[in-house]
């Protein structure tokens, strides 16, 4: 599963380097947050224990690690893959699920604040593409299902 989204060769270098540790704001400020430990376990095949850890959600995706990395890879790829894996198993912060549900339903993460807009003299907000978005998302899911079934029958 993780080998589909991660480059283990680059991760092995990450395990030995750690140049991004001192520039990562979460590493500096959050006690116990250390993606190097997660990467070590991913490489050893022991990543499961991190799926329930809050630490995998504490990567701020600030891309500092990516920019300083001589491989242009960084901690964040490992943390993103772990979060995706956890979310697939239904393990995620409650707010993440709420946000996702709202996006799928409305195509946005909130509705324009109409009374405040009126007070400020702002124009009517433009129409959203929510209908088209929902249609595309349904199509995406359908295609994935078909691909999955084709893979299964090919096995």
């Amino acid at each position: 599963m993780l080998d589909a989204t991660l480059n283990f060769k680059l991760l092995e270098m990450c395990g030995r380097c750690g140049a991004c540790f001192s520039i990562c704001p979460s590493c500096v400020n959050i006690p116990g947050y250390d993606p190097r430990a997660v990467i070590k376990d991913i490489l050893a095949g022991n990543h499961e224990k991190w799926l329930t850890s809050r630490h995998i959600w504490e990567c701020l995706e600030c891309h500092h690690c990516l920019e300083i990395c001589f491989q242009h890879y960084g901690f964040e790829n490992a943390m993103t893959s772990m979060r995706t894996l956890a979310a697939k198993k239904g393990i995620h912060p409650a707010q993440v699920k709420r946000g996702w549900d709202m996006l799928v339903k409305t195509s946005r993460l909130g509705e324009p604040a109409m009374p405040a807009r009126k007070k400020l003299g702002l124009p009517e907000p433009k129409a959203t593409g929510s209908e088209e978005f929902r249609k595309l998302y349904e199509l995406l899911k359908k295609r994935r299902l078909e691909e999955h079934q084709a893979d299964k029958s090919g096995e």
Partner: peptide
């Protein structure tokens, strides 16, 4: 648009 329409202003 949801929280800070004054920024749009």
């Amino acid at each position: 648009q949801t929280r800070f329409p004054f920024i749009e202003k």
